Simulated scan of single mutants.
Amino acid sequence: MIQPLGVILAGGLATRMGGGDKGRLRLGHGTILSHVIDRFEPQVAGLALNANGDISRFEDLNLPIIIDSIVGYAGPLAGVLAGMDWAAKQGATHVVSAAADTPFLPCDLVPRLLMAAENSRTGLAMAATPDGRQPTFGLWPLDLRDDLRDALDGGLRKVVLWTQRHDCAMAEFDDSDAFFNVNTPDDLAQAEAML
Rank of each mutant, 00 (worst) to 15 (best):
T15A: 13
G132N: 13
A100H: 12
D21W: 05
D150I: 10
L139Q: 12
N62G: 11
A92H: 09
L77R: 03
A51W: 02
S97P: 11
N62H: 15
L13T: 15
G19I: 05
A98I: 13
P42T: 07
M17T: 11
V95C: 11
G20P: 15
W162R: 04
F137Q: 08
W140D: 10
R149F: 07
D147H: 04
W140P: 01
H94E: 15
I2S: 14
P106F: 03
G6N: 01
A87H: 11
G19M: 08
G53Y: 05
G20D: 15
A78Q: 07
G132W: 04
G72S: 10
L148F: 01
A87V: 09
D167C: 00
D54T: 02
F180D: 13
P141W: 05
L63T: 05
T122I: 03
E172C: 04
G12R: 00
G6A: 02
D21N: 03
A191R: 04
K89F: 07
A88W: 05
F137A: 09
A10W: 05
W86T: 13
A191N: 10
A125I: 09
E192K: 11
K89G: 15
L5K: 12
L27K: 08
L49I: 02
L144R: 11
G19A: 12
F137K: 04
I67S: 12
L13W: 01
M84G: 14
D21S: 04
D60T: 00
S120V: 03
L77N: 08
A178V: 02
A100T: 02
R112E: 15
D174K: 05
L142A: 13
G72F: 07
A117W: 01
V160F: 02
R57G: 12
T163P: 02
P76A: 07
D54I: 02
T15N: 11
G154D: 15
N183W: 10
A117C: 11
A10S: 12
G75H: 00
N181S: 13
T163Y: 10
A193I: 06
L105M: 11
D38A: 13
A14R: 14
R165M: 12
G23Y: 05
A178P: 03
P130L: 06
S34Y: 05
D146L: 12
L47H: 01
L77K: 03
A191K: 09
Q190Y: 10
R133Q: 06
I2G: 01
S176T: 13
